[in-house]
Write a protein that binds this DNA or RNA. Structure first.
Lengths: 207, 207, 207, 207
DNA sequence: TATGAATGAGACTTCATTCAT
DNA sequence: TATGAATGAAGTCTCATTCAT
């Protein structure tokens, strides 16, 4: 199983307890990582926020990096679940894409601190963990690619398959942009406005 | 007075020597930062690569963060100078934009390790230094925004001013994407191909 | 709240352990400070004498200067407690003063290395800590001033209030002299003799 | 020769130049030592204040401690010369003593920062240099002891020889007190007042 | 399971002193 | 004689991780 739950070893036998505690751990860590970054946050601080002892904390993880993985995984799952949940896709591709963009960008906005964290600290993971996160990322891109591909089949979008993949990547990145270039964008644009403008640009580019 | 050269204090009196040595220092540090990241690179390693003693290194900077600033500043200047150098802009807006995109993406590709570093470690700078880099970044965006604005005036592009700014941001980020999402993109696309596809998407979206 | 115990932050939660270890720390540091001075003693040496790792040492203090504060505070408390303990003051002012002088000078002699340290290194403390020690010092002076003031009221001493304060300061300093000018004094005078001579001079000056 | 001038080796041949430069060096260093203490003052800072290069500075001394010695020696000589210069001693012992006390305390006051420095940093000298300074100090004490001894012979002072030595030490220390306990004394007493009170106490104690 | 004191390696930084020019 | 860049050892402090209780 390549399940993120079992990737990280633990001293604790009770699987449910592991999950509960790890969720608490993630909640404690994520705020600290957002505020100070991964490297500048100490395990002591996390334990304190976590409300447990250092020893207890280390019963649920093996290394500090494990915490980062749990956090990144959690953030990614949040986005992914919310986005999957919002997709109904019973309309035409154009409408489906508009909805997906709106929902995705809205999710990014809601958890923009976390998105930023994900974007900035993934590189601090070891190869294996990073690849795990990146695979998950690919699944998200695939959602947009699928919608576009449907549109192509339906002759709504006039681009080829190769372009579809890039277009899907663009959408992903334009969502993340809202968070990681907020210093440049959010001064001048409301989220609603941003969504509207980007959606128009995207749709024009696909047609 | 807000020159990046003079932002960082030095014990050394010979200004030319400072510049020479700092360039050497940047060269030494950048490879290490690319390979291991800023936080995991030690000053000792940098000094070794620099080819001088720790003490000598600290004659040219005050803190480890200063090195990161020098590196980021250098990378940004590289991109900026190359891009400015390549701009002739004697054609119509459409042609100018195509050329600028091609040149910018090509530059990013040439120094993609550095680009990646810049976009991943800027956040590790202190407020002041980070703002300095971000201001420089804004100047780059302005180049693309200008070209687009000209196109709007020339009635070549059919978008409003608000959209122009976002479109310019998009171009910037789509260039950086080539580096920071290379794991997703570079397997399947050559740079030439990537430029072609993105250029088409962009131009369609503006028309 | 201005307790010397709580002035210095610690990572350790067990308050009693803090006190025990800090006492051990003071014992380890004081000999080194006496032998080599504060600046020439390294934290590594202190840790070694302390019998624990550097990390453990820094669990009980924040900076090297904290150690000096603990040491100075400890020394001062020693003197102060011993002196307070010896004061009965049921005789006339003349007798009380003689006893106080004898006791104070004797205490100084017993811990003369520490006294010396206190009067040489207090200046190395930061403003706040130094003021704390100096305030404590003032309380000691007040003891002598009180006795003298009583003597004035009882018409035993024929000096005015202004003079009393200076006389009290003199007594303090003449006690400390025994330590800090030992190179000049202790060759030629026994403690007993020194006390006798100084007591006579003081009493004559007050009468 | 145990001359302080020749105690410290120099690369420079021209003896007069050595003396001139060393005087400048002392002037530069003393202010820094007063402000920051010996240990916290760097040789670089001294060289800068000195107006010469590090290399030049090291042509006139061998170690940083040499500078401290030069400074301490200079301060001591200042006090000593001024005091010797003011002594005429053509009156009776009582009057001579009063004048000497007044002059000595006044000198201490004039250079109280330097007195303090001398008192606090002598311990940082190596054994040899420290002894040199302490010997010089003894000569000063001898001045007061002489006056008192004369007074004893003249039957003006009613104390024995042993007591005379201690009384002389007391005077020295009471002068230094004005500097090193200024935080306790100078708030409440003017120099004039302090001299008056101490003189009275001393004279009463000797009579 | 849980605690938290202890470890110890290693991080960044400083600075007295030297030496090629 | 003068310069100041360079040395490198040593300093203080941090922190992920462990383990006795």
């Amino acid at each position: 199983m390549n399940d993120s739950k079992t990737r990280i070893a633990s001293n604790i036998k009770d699987k449910d307890l592991i999950n509960v505690r790890r969720q608490e751990l993630v909640n404690a860590a994520v705020e600290l990582f957002v505020k100070k970054g991964f490297h500048k946050t100490t395990v002591r601080e996390i334990a304190k926020e976590f409300g447990m002892s250092m020893g207890a904390l280390y019963d649920y993880i093996r290394t500090k990096e494990d915490i980062l993985f749990l956090v990144c995984d959690h953030i990614h799952k949040s986005v992914s679940e919310k986005l999957q949940g919002s997709l109904v896709g019973n309309k035409d591709a154009r409408e489906n894409l508009k909805n997906a963009i709106r929902d995705y960008f809205t999710i990014i906005d809601e958890i923009q601190d976390y998105s930023l964290l994900l974007y900035q600290e993934t590189k601090s993971l070891n190869r294996t963990d990073r690849n795990y996160i990146l695979s998950a990322e690919k699944e998200l891109v695939a959602i947009f690619e699928d919608i576009i591909t449907h549109g192509i089949r339906e002759k709504i979008f006039k681009i080829d398959r190769n372009t579809a993949k890039i277009a899907a990547e663009n959408i992903m990145v334009q969502g993340q942009m809202w968070a990681f270039r907020r210093w440049a964008i959010q001064k001048n644009y409301s989220l609603k406005n941003y969504i509207k403008i980007q959606t128009e640009l995207i749709l024009k580019s696909l047609t």
